[in-house]
């Protein structure tokens, strides 16, 4: 359990990107996304530059494009919203394929699609090249409060256990003929949620007692120290620096 769960998104490999300390990657991704969000939406070339940067990062980390594309589906609800925008927004209209749509809405849709997709891809690349546990260590190195990091560690370790319980309760319900058809079945779902809460809470109490009996004093021992050298910070600064440059040029030079 302590050995770092391989989670949904992580792809094991040994590349320079995988070897980079997690805190460097976290900061780099955050700054990159900030630069993307701060870019004016009508500088189309800048978004091309960002996409190329991400493609380069993916190539270094040997993350295949198909893998990234399959993961982008989390974005779908907002894509739907973006496609509705040209019809919802007000202001001057333009003619697209014979349909009058709002010019501003079209820009808005582009804005959300481009920035949202770049953000999602950046997060996917981060998660694909960094094990969960390392990301948490990285957050700790970035001075995130210890208690918060511990809570996240527990959540990660036990989310599979709790999801497993949810799954078994679902099987148990359905093997007794339960089918969630409409609102009348809600009490059953709620009682399952209640039972799940009690089980989770009691497990938390047992975990706490087990930790106490092993000498827990409120802080977790540091087993692996992930220090980052100046050189590593320098390497990981390449992505946000390039993005910041593109952003600055976009602001100054225009379309």
């Amino acid at each position: 359990m302590g050995a770092g769960h391989a989670h949904d998104l992580y792809r094991h490999a040994d590349t320079p990107l995988h070897r980079l300390p997690p805190q460097c990657k976290l900061v780099a991704v955050l700054l990159f996304v900030l630069a993307v969000v701060a870019t004016p939406r009508d500088r189309f070339w800048a978004f091309g530059v960002y996409a190329l940067l991400l493609a380069a990062v993916a190539a270094v980390g040997r993350v295949p494009a198909g893998y990234v594309l399959r993961r982008v589906v989390v974005e779908i609800p907002f894509v739907v919203f973006a496609f509705a925008l040209p019809f919802l927004a007000s202001g001057p209209t333009v003619d697209v394929l014979g349909v009058d749509v709002s010019r501003d809405g079209l820009y808005g849709a582009w804005n959300i699609l481009a920035k949202g997709t770049l953000g999602v891809v950046a997060s996917i690349l981060l998660a694909a090249t960094t094990p969960l546990r390392d990301l948490l260590l990285g957050m700790e190195r970035l001075r995130m409060p210890q208690l918060l990091v511990q809570i996240m560690q527990f959540m990660l370790r036990y989310s599979e256990v709790i999801s497993g319980e949810t799954g078994r309760m679902k099987v148990a319900r359905e093997s007794r003929g339960f089918q969630a058809r409409d609102v009348r079945q809600l009490p059953v779902v709620a009682k399952s949620a209640g039972a799940l809460f009690i089980r989770s809470y009691e497990r938390g109490e047992r975990v706490h007692l087990a930790m106490l009996s092993r000498g827990y004093t409120g802080t977790m021992p540091v087993v692996t120290d992930v220090r980052a050298s100046a050189a590593q910070w320098g390497v990981s600064a390449a992505l946000p620096a390039a993005a910041a440059l593109a952003c600055a040029v976009a602001w100054l030079a225009g379309a």
């Binding site: 989310s159 709790i162 058809r181």
Partner: peptide
């Protein structure tokens, strides 16, 4: 008190799991 980390962690895992529990709203 000092049980905060394990208990809050488990409750967070519970919230995470409960968000996957879909219930029917309308047809």
């Amino acid at each position: 008190d000092e049980r905060a980390a394990p208990l809050a962690g488990l409750v967070a895992a519970f919230i995470f799991a409960v968000q996957m529990l879909n219930f029917p709203v309308a047809s």
